[in-house]
């Protein structure tokens, strides 16, 4: 399981300057994306999933946002230290993104094929004509009927699912090494969701693209991912393979998340639990463990010191940021 690391994120911190104070949206986040892997990032709304991934490509808008610390290594290069010029040659070509809401993420006044062709012309030096032909080919590939005619349409003439397909065509047009999909199905109907996930899965596997799949839906994780990071209040609280997370979750928050989804083999007298309480205010993070106010197992130490990430059984890919698991952590 020692696959090549394609993206190495370490100590990432991103904050927003607001009228109320500084929002610590991403707070010391580290993870690796391995070659060919699909890595899930799960967590409640507002826990910093999107901001983490915008930070990777320096897409956080300043002001109010600012990346204050950390590094993002891609091909041994720290993207956070790249010039604007350099990062533009990475964006869309080597690392591409699909966004949460396909309606607002496509430009309403530009034809669909033009929006797909832009990256092709820029990164692959295609002529307008070649790029249009390629855009139509991509539209066919992702299952848009009458692609030739539809290419000349504008985004509002497409349904939600179709728009997200267009986003996928756009993102995969230049065969990126890494695809970051930010809740690609959240805004869609359940039936369409499955189709979109299927397309992402097939295309990324076929092209050996590594995927970061952001979601708050554990079903998507089970369906798509090899490994998972669970985020809470701007931090990663647990890191595991999908099987480990589903069969042996360690962090009280992960356990809570898993208990809140229905399972087919669930005993009928077992109730569904949602985690009580609300996520903390990222401006005034409580001292110690950020999950403490909602944690049923909180101890004295939890109020005093924020738990570091303990690796379980010496496995670097299996970590938990919780004092309960300090003893399972073996140094070395």
């Amino acid at each position: 399981m020692s696959k090549e690391i394609i993206l190495h994120i370490e100590g990432l911190r991103t904050e927003f300057q607001t009228e109320r104070g500084v929002v610590q949206a991403v707070n010391d986040v580290s993870f690796d994306l391995h070659q060919g892997e699909t890595l899930g990032i799960v967590g409640e709304s507002g826990c910093g999933k999107s901001v983490t991934n915008f930070s990777i490509l320096k897409l956080v808008q300043y002001p109010p946002g600012r990346i204050t610390d950390g590094q993002v290594l891609y091909n041994e290069k720290n993207l956070l230290e790249c010039s604007d010029e350099e990062i533009r040659t990475i964006r869309g070509k080597h690392i591409a993104m699909i966004f949460q809401d396909p309606l607002t993420s496509l430009n309403p006044v530009i034809k669909v094929w033009v929006q797909i062709a832009e990256a092709l012309r820029l990164h692959q030096g295609m002529s307008k004509k070649e790029a249009k032909a390629k855009a139509i080919e991509l539209l066919k590939l992702i299952g848009i009927p009458d692609a030739e005619q539809r290419a000349d349409n504008y985004p509002h003439q497409f349904s939600g699912g179709m728009r997200q397909r267009v986003m996928i065509a756009m993102a995969l047009s230049c065969n990126p090494d890494v695809l970051i999909a930010d809740e690609p199905t959240t805004a869609l109907d359940v039936t369409i969701q499955a189709q979109i996930l299927e397309i992402i899965k097939n295309l990324s596997h076929g092209r050996k693209t590594s995927v970061i799949m952001i979601t708050h839906d554990l079903g998507v994780v089970a369906e798509m991912c090899d490994a998972v990071c669970v985020m809470y209040a701007g931090r990663i609280v647990e890191r595991a393979s999908v099987d480990e997370l589903f069969y042996d979750p360690k962090h009280p928050y992960s356990i809570g998340l898993l208990n809140s989804i229905p399972r087919i083999n669930q005993d009928s007298d077992e109730r569904l639990h949602s985690i009580s309480g609300a996520p903390p205010d990222l401006i005034d993070l409580p001292h110690g463990c950020p999950f403490r106010p909602r944690c049923t197992q909180a101890m004295d130490i939890c109020a005093q010191k924020s738990p570091p990430e303990f690796s379980i059984g010496g496995n670097e890919l299996r970590t938990v940021a919780c004092w309960l698991h300090e003893k399972e952590h073996s140094h070395g």
Partner: peptide
């Protein structure tokens, strides 16, 4: 501030195209 501006930037477009086209 719109999302599609971020999409345009994520494609690697130059500042000039982002502003004048998108």
């Amino acid at each position: 501030q719109q999302d599609y501006i971020r999409t345009a930037k994520a494609k690697g477009l130059k500042q000039r195209s982002v502003i004048y086209t998108h």
